[in-house]
Design a binder for these strands. Sequence first.
DNA 1: TGTACATCAGTGAACGCGCGTTCACTGATGTAC
DNA 2: TGTACATCAGTGAACGCGCGTTCACTGATGTAC
Lengths: 205, 205
Amino acid sequence: MPKRGYHHGNLRQALVQSALELIESKGPTGFTLSEAAKRAGVTPAAVYRHFEGREDLITEAARQGYEMFADLIQYAYDNGQPSALAAFEATGRAYLAFARKHPGHYIAMFESSISVNRTPELAAAAARARAVMEQAAADLSQHIPTNRRPPASLFSAHIWAMSHGVVELFARSGPGTQSPFAPEDLLESGIGIYLRGLGLLPPDS
Amino acid sequence: MPKRGYHHGNLRQALVQSALELIESKGPTGFTLSEAAKRAGVTPAAVYRHFEGREDLITEAARQGYEMFADLIQYAYDNGQPSALAAFEATGRAYLAFARKHPGHYIAMFESSISVNRTPELAAAAARARAVMEQAAADLSQHIPTNRRPPASLFSAHIWAMSHGVVELFARSGPGTQSPFAPEDLLESGIGIYLRGLGLLPPDS
DNA sequence: TGTACATCAGTGAACGCGCGTTCACTGATGTAC
DNA sequence: TGTACATCAGTGAACGCGCGTTCACTGATGTAC
């Protein structure tokens, strides 16, 4: 990475990257605008050429996270065709993979104090991510007899909750750290049991 | 609450209370030792008569949380006897009730940066809470044929993950805020479907 | 190709702030006699 | 019951620190002619 002298060239994105690294390693608490600037090789004041301030920088990091997340989930889902079930399971794996590979984004999205409605752009990105997940749930629930079919948004919320819970409790250092199960196995088996409960998987396996 | 002049009387616990209120309203980030002291009507320096410092105060708040949590879960579980299923469902409700009624404790326990191994006392309290949940899962899974029975710790981890996910995503202001479902309903229906998947509930409801 | 000039990204010094922590102290409490 | 004294909870001033933000500035870039 060549230092380009007085002008940085792509400072805006470099600042987002620094912010993500800091958020990943120190939590949203530990993130400071000054340190992000220093990491990007720039004076804190330079940040104000590209962002309104500290919160605005975190918001942009979260927005990029939602965009990536929605893309990944969408891709995993589309790719699992033709079986709705296989597509759904790929979606679950993609969720966990995203949280693992992009912890900075994940934290900015779900654990920072940034409201999803802080900017229209952030709200739109978050809504798109939610819509993709709900669509997956809706498609899969076509296979449930209508009289036993839960609303797709309920279905989707359950899966999301379990996924998020696994990430927070077992894929990070935390109270459940000592768990003997890999997060991936935990989530996959949990979703499996849940889908069996909906009649989407055979009762024995 | 009488102001007792120079000596406070029960400053230690008053500081924990102030800390909990601050953590609840501003997050673990927003919590400062100085403001907790001010709320308790005392100089910041007075805190050091009772705690080693900022982290130590949060640790004590989390420890009290785990103790309360373990007691509540244990109580709810015992109260559901003799039916293992009823006991288990009461346990799930108790989880959510705890998170709702004691958000400061919940955040200190699960969302602060405090490691569960920071002190032996905290580790012990957390272990007890975990043990109670695992016991509930173990008792309930007695009703599953051995060849289809998952390890109690896996079972317990699934339930814990879903509960925590519901709390984080749907019982707080967050990305899922707009959800049309009450957290209680979300969790109860989710656990119901999961238990059906384990064969612990009849396939139709 | 060369010069003048507008643009604007980044500088660096400064600000006021609240933080966690330390220190020598003071004053209330309670116990010994 | 009264006095002397040890204990120790809380004071208040001070510290160094890093923070987010502002400001007038400077120097690199690119465009017009």
